[in-house]
Simulated scan of single mutants.
Amino acid sequence: MSTDMVRDIGDLGPEPEQRPDLILVVDDDQDIAGFVEFNLKMEGYDVLRAADGEEALRVIQDRRPDLAVVDWMMPGMNGVELTRRLRAEPLTSTLPVIMLTAKSMTADKVVGLRSGVDDYLVKPFDTFELLARVTNTLQRNKEFREVSPLTGLPGNSRVRREIHDRMRAGGEYSVGYIDIDRFKSVNDVYGFDRGDEFITALARCLHKAVTTIGPPSIFLGHIGGDDFVFICAPDQVLPLTKRTVTDFEQAADRLYDPGDAERGYIEVPDRRGNKNKAALVTLSIGVAQATVEGRTFTDPRVVIAVASEMKKVAKSQPGSYVAIDRRRAGGDGDE
């Protein structure tokens, strides 16, 4: 396995060392702020404190916390105004906020929700409720960040964890890497909005194929652009890819302008104004397999690298093509 192949999929490298989540507590009542800080630290979180909204903005600019626990009633800038300020700035717009408040009226909660608050804690609250809401809000935010906004599928870090979990569980599994051939020509001729339609069409076709095949569970990921990953049992690979290819080619035909679809190619202008013919899109799919009689893997990077290598093999073939790695080896070092 070449080092170039591993660099191609650097985004799917080993998990970085995880630091504790950093939580900012914003409250002018030092007793309450101290209580919240103590319990969060006991749970393993790192904690910063600010006494008001202005100080909180300065702290956030310097440290970038993962979550803010904010009191509603504070002198100067209250919690609602602080939240509005956070939502208005691109770098802090997704920072999750839990509001501490004595207000329990529905109208007051609506005001907070409209400002962008993620959750509430009504005073007085107990330690277990505080920790539960912090944990749940952090988890929801992390899951949201890991999902492609275009397809709704999980991204690189979630793909890496799923492969790692399959390795740890043992048994047989396959990892497929899907790429749309000549996708750049679609963007060049029709623009990025039409290109996004091709990407979402592929996501829908994959979902449909997974639903048709049924259990065991098949994992789907979108790792950027027109690149997708699936993780499944080895005997699911061919049914999944066959159904996906058939449905996607039909869907893609409908996304081209009628004249282009009918003649079977589009004309792509180059820098000199010449028009070059580009065939309609197809799919190249590379598959790495961990099987009893074949390879075993201990590093998610290597699995993806093998699938990427096989995808390049598929691209060398005409039309949509599935290339499956069937080489036998004892482990990662035998490639």
Rank of each mutant, 00 (worst) to 15 (best):
V210T: 08
R254F: 10
L280H: 03
A290D: 02
P14W: 10
S308A: 15
Y256G: 07
K103N: 11
L100E: 03
A68N: 02
T127N: 08
I32S: 04
R271C: 09
D181A: 07
T241D: 05
G221T: 08
D27H: 05
P75V: 11
R160T: 14
T282P: 02
Y265A: 06
D226N: 07
M77T: 11
V6M: 12
A107T: 14
K315D: 08
N141C: 14
G224M: 03
T137M: 12
L86A: 04
V313I: 11
G294V: 05
R263Q: 14
G44Q: 07
V268Q: 03
L40F: 03
N187Y: 04
F230A: 02
L238R: 14
K242A: 15
P75I: 14
R49V: 04
K142C: 08
E129K: 14
V80N: 06
A50R: 00
C205D: 02
R243N: 11
L22A: 03
D71Q: 04
R328A: 15
A307V: 09
L82M: 06
L91D: 13
R328Q: 15
L95K: 00
T200R: 02
D31Y: 07
P258F: 11
S308E: 10
L24T: 02
I231H: 01
T244I: 09
E81K: 09
V292A: 12
L150S: 10
G171D: 09
L206M: 07
G214P: 01
D29Y: 05
A102C: 11
S157R: 13
P14F: 14
M74N: 06
R272F: 14
A169S: 12
P300M: 07
F125I: 15
P269K: 06
T106G: 10
H222L: 03
T291R: 10
P216E: 03
D332W: 12
K311T: 15
Y190D: 01
A307Q: 03
S115D: 11
T92A: 05
I213W: 00
L95C: 03
D66G: 04
M1A: 14
V268F: 07
D299A: 13
L283M: 07
D253H: 15
V229G: 00
E335S: 12
D299S: 12
R64N: 09
R204S: 07
R7M: 13
Y45P: 00
A261R: 06
E143F: 15
D8S: 14
G79Y: 02
I23K: 00
P20E: 05
D260S: 08
G264W: 10
L24K: 00
A68E: 01
D332S: 13
I304K: 00
L24R: 00
R301E: 08
D4M: 15
Y265R: 05
